[in-house]
């Protein structure tokens, strides 16, 4: 039917997945740094921690808008079903992001109210991370669909499983934040971050195992996908790779290495993301709606693809440039100068 030599919904599924993954790891370490504020009560440490993510956080957060916008443009049906299904956790996440976003700016504009904005920074980040994790669990456990609309109630997202994934994401972000600080700071703060990274790494691995064990029992389809031929060819390498990366991660932490723990934590996230993709593909609402059912017409997908193909590489170049400019350790005396 299509005049195009490739499948547009598949391309768009990968673009949206890329945007979501970029968001998760990039904003993941920003949020994670904020989650570690309670472990670092000194003002000076907090200044350095915030400075380490300040140059990049809002570029990072924009991937969330692109993920949502891409979903709306390319898969409007999925957007229309998932958003009401995830109503409460998403609204909580958005409000959390508002609080932590303005905290970046407001914290420096006041002496008196600084503790308030510190709380907003950590609290907002915690709510956002928890909301994202709960939303993930709620999608995985399945949402009820009738016709072209969400058919469940507004508390359906709440379950033991979604709380588990919520805690898992919070823990994983804290790991990203801690290993980011190991990479970006020195002295006492770096040592403290190293001490924090190890328990968060172990806890994150524990969560990965628990969530992985629970997932096949959610839906028959996951069980089939994971343990039946030929799905098993795809699913077996993922846990093996996770185990390998986990070992390297723990060893790099024990060796007090600078950047390896962060890179290995990113790889851990990537593998989990691949695992999720393998479990869900080719659906976009697990067990209910496939990417082809949800896809907007070719005319819509092509129209946005043209701009995306031009703008995303430029955006990525700029992002890389920004990270390059701010490479190296944060200097606690002079900010970045």
């Amino acid at each position: 039917m299509s005049l195009l030599p490739f499948d547009l919904p598949t391309i768009w599924a990968f673009i949206v997945a890329f945007a979501v993954f970029a968001y998760v790891v990039l904003d993941g370490f920003d949020l994670g740094v904020a989650l570690l504020f309670p472990f670092c009560p000194e003002r000076r440490d907090r200044d350095v921690m915030m400075n380490s993510v300040a140059p990049v956080w809002d570029g990072n957060e924009t991937w969330l808008v692109l993920g949502g916008g891409g979903l709306f443009a390319a898969f409007p049906l999925a957007y229309a079903v998932l958003m009401p299904a995830l109503y409460a956790p998403l609204i909580a996440m958005l409000l959390g992001l508002v609080l932590r976003g303005v905290a970046f700016e407001f914290r420096w504009r006041t002496e008196r109210a600084r503790p308030v904005w510190d709380i907003a920074f950590t609290g907002g980040s915690l709510v956002a991370a928890l909301g994202q994790g709960i939303a993930l669990g709620a999608v995985l456990q399945g949402v009820s669909v009738s016709g072209r609309a969400y058919a469940g109630g507004w508390w359906d997202w709440l379950s033991a499983f979604s709380l588990l994934t919520g805690a898992a994401v919070v823990c994983g972000y804290a790991l990203l934040g801690a290993t980011w600080l190991v990479m970006k700071t020195g002295g006492e703060l770096q040592i403290r971050a190293q001490r924090l990274a190890r328990p968060f790494a172990l806890a994150t691995l524990g969560f990965i195992v628990t969530v992985s064990l629970a997932t096949p029992f959610l839906e028959e389809a996951y069980w089939q996908r994971w343990f039946a031929w030929p799905g098993i060819v795809l699913t077996v390498p993922v846990p093996l790779a996770v185990a390998g990366v986990a070992l390297f991660l723990l060893r790099s932490l024990a060796d007090a290495h600078d950047y390896k723990p962060f890179v290995l934590s990113l790889m851990l996230f990537f593998l989990c993301f691949v695992g999720l993709g393998v479990s869900i593909w080719p659906n976009i609402v697990p067990g209910r709606i496939s990417i082809w059912q949800a896809a907007a017409p070719d005319e819509s997908q092509v129209f946005v693809l043209v701009g995306t193909a031009i703008l995303i590489p430029i955006i990525l170049t700029y992002t890389a440039y920004a990270y390059w400019v701010f490479r190296g350790k944060v200097d606690p005396e002079h900010g970045y100068h």
Binding site: V56, D58, W108, A322, G335, Y336, H337
Partner: peptide, 9 residues
């Protein structure tokens, strides 16, 4: 000196 420079926003 404590305040950060930002690339964006």
């Amino acid at each position: 000196p404590a305040e950060p420079v930002r690339t964006a926003g």
